[in-house]
């Protein structure tokens, strides 16, 4: 993270100078590339901080198996998903008051942009596993195919992925092939829709728009200096 903490994640009880090169993570990346070959479609290495790799969707479970048995990443951290669609509701929290006070415009990008290690589809699944013996960790992402919205399940490799995949299915609508039983984990059974998708609106904000900075009463002593937003407590 910053330069003050010297032991970085890949040290094997030895001091390492993680200045510009990150030998531990580079070795991890090499091992993964060697095993996965073409399935590894993107990667991002932040020296001293983290390694992110992106794999093809059909290699999602194989990557997990290799990480667990071949590279010693026995600790399962989490599995989740990201929706890269720019929200059609803007930031959903700009009121005219905020815009006039701070002059910020709501961002309305039409294009989809992706994060570290790139991406091509609207949904991505991402996961993180740790090797707690050597203190290493890696983030893995995969594009979810648009037509089927299905990726292989990790339950055969890490038993703990069961609940995480149920949550991703419920919140995003992504199916996991090979999962013993995808059913609701948080929401009541009759809930319609996938809440974490960007086009799922927060209805309370649709019905009553964000009122912005509201000053109920002036602080004692500066009655006239009260904010010129004109909004009163409603």
């Amino acid at each position: 993270m910053s330069s003050t903490d010297t032991p970085t994640e890949e040290t094997d009880a030895e001091e390492t100078d993680a200045t510009a090169t990150d030998t531990g993570r580079e070795a991890m990346l090499e091992q993964l590339t060697g095993e996965l070959g073409d399935s590894l479609v993107g990667s991002h290495l932040e020296p001293g901080i983290d390694l992110t790799v992106r794999v093809a969707a059909d290699a999602w479970a194989d990557t997990a198996a290799f990480l667990k048995t071949g590279m010693g990443f026995a600790y399962f951290n989490f599995v989740s998903a990201i929706d890269w669609l720019p929200s059609p509701f803007g930031r959903d929290m700009d009121s005219q008051v905020d815009i006039s006070l701070e002059g910020s415009e709501p961002k309305e990008t039409e294009e989809m942009t992706w994060g570290l290690a790139g991406g091509e589809t609207r949904f991505q699944v991402f996961a993180r596993v740790n090797d707690i013996v050597n203190h290493r960790a890696v983030t893995i992402k995969a594009d979810v195919p648009e037509d089927s919205l299905t990726v292989p399940s990790w339950v055969g490799v890490y038993a703990g992925a069961n609940w995480h995949e149920r949550e991703a299915w419920e919140m995003f609508g992504i199916s996991f092939e090979g999962h013993p039983g995808l059913r609701h984990i948080y929401l009541p059974g009759e809930f319609e829709g996938n809440p974490m998708r960007k086009d799922f609106p927060l209805l309370a904000r649709r019905v009553k728009p964000w009122p912005g900075i509201v000053d109920v009463e002036a602080m004692p002593g500066d009655d006239d200096e009260a904010d010129a937003d004109g909004e009163d407590a409603s």
Binding site: D5, A74, Y75, F76, N77, I132, Y158, G160
Partner: peptide
């Protein structure tokens, strides 16, 4: 311990099974 690692247990739950892992020591971060 190995089942605990697969499920991603952490904190005293995994240390109570003999796994010596503490993020405070291994990756203090800030």
């Amino acid at each position: 311990a190995d089942i605990g690692l697969q499920y991603g247990l952490s904190g005293a739950n995994i240390r109570g099974s003999g796994v010596d892992w503490d993020v405070r020591r291994d990756n203090p971060n800030g």
